[in-house]
Design a protein around this nucleic acid. Structure first.
Lengths: 203, 203
DNA sequence: CCTCAAGGATACCGATCGTTTTACATGGGC
DNA sequence: GCCCATGTAAAACGATCGGTATCCTTGAGG
């Protein structure tokens, strides 16, 4: 009992949870290549063995990490109660109100874009998953635009997604969060123009 | 002094040149972390020894690589003869005509943005150099806008830079080059609006 | 001819990576 | 009591990384 070998007590059954949480924290904070299995298992308070019997490899963990991000409440999710009833304009602009977790840490941009850079192979599952996510995001914006009667919803969705990605990438490079505000201002211009045209086209 | 001592004996056949060329090729094609010194020296047709007496470390080579990119003819360079006499509108939009390396290899986006992701530490020289480049690029665009009489040239420059970065990042993620066309179309909208205001403001 | 520095090929170094294995500890169900 | 799946801690693995040292060839200047 008073042995110096006081072993850490068995940590319940949340191992997978904790690993995924640690992955989210470390991958987004310092990148994938800069995060080792050792550090991962330490932060997750899990032995490497346990880690490897939950995820067969680091690659698989990276994919699971992206999936968990995808499932998490999203900036672009219009299903949220506050946004469901909001105006199309607010729904379309909600993406740009994204606040990436901690405010003190250096801004790290969009995890999906970063994975695209950190995993060079375009055929890698993680890379493809990131691409799919980006497409889905643009499509959702296009759907909102379509329901609002915008003339060319696909283009508007693609444009808004591009603005978001630009703010994420540039914000990381300059380590400056208010780049997102620039993106929002451009988005407002585009959205307002598109909605004005829509209103004029079918009154 | 006309070569006093044999300090310039055997000119290394432009070893430094070849190393830098290989770095440009490999770093942009497959990323920095995915490119090892071994492969680098092989492609450059240079022994590791020679490589390390031209660049003290890989970090230093990365910095030199970014510098060489910076010196190379740039998409945003208005000094080029064809652009020097072009209209401000064309000068501002010239960034979006960037064709990266003209190859059929997968689109790899903007090297400076990629370095920001691949080198997580914001204090790293390479990271700071990339940030500086991004700022300089936006400032140059702002200068062109100012000379054209745009009301808020800084904002326009920042917006155009953001659009370019968005196209680069998103183009890599989706492995799709014509994202740049979307960016251009948004840029045209912004530039035309700004120039129209300028013409109206001070006729 | 000989000398000798520049450079090539390659073995080697320590560190770290992702991954596997070994040895032991825990606790619920029989 | 014992069994055994599940867990931890730690060592070890092979591969590869950035970086260094060794040995040998080359070729111009004396």
């Amino acid at each position: 009992m008073n042995e110096p070998t006081a072993v850490r007590r068995r940590q319940g059954r949340g191992a997978r949870e904790r690993i995924l949480r640690a992955a989210t924290e470390l991958f987004t904070a310092q990148g994938i290549n800069a995060t080792g299995i050792e550090q991962l298992s330490t932060v997750a308070e899990v032995s490497k063995r346990t880690l490897y019997q939950h995820f067969r490899s680091k690659d698989e963990l990276v994919v699971a990490y992206l999936r968990s991000l995808d499932d998490a409440p999203q900036p672009v999710a219009p299903e949220q109660p506050t946004l469901a009833a909001a105006s199309p304009r607010e729904q379309l602009l909600a993406v740009f109100d994204w606040k990436p977790a901690e405010t003190m840490a250096p801004f790290r941009g969009c995890p999906f874009l970063n994975v695209s850079v950190e995993v060079p192979d375009p055929g890698h599952p993680a890379h493809e998953l990131a691409a799919a996510k980006k497409k889905r995001c643009a499509r959702r914006l296009a759907d909102i635009a379509r329901q609002a009667g915008v003339a060319d919803p696909e283009t508007l969705g693609e444009q808004l997604a591009l603005l978001f990605d630009g703010a994420a990438a540039r914000g990381l490079a300059l380590n400056n969060r208010h780049v997102m505000a620039y993106a929002r201002s451009i988005a407002e211009t585009l959205v307002d123009a598109a909605l004005a045209d829509a209103g004029r086209g079918s009154p």
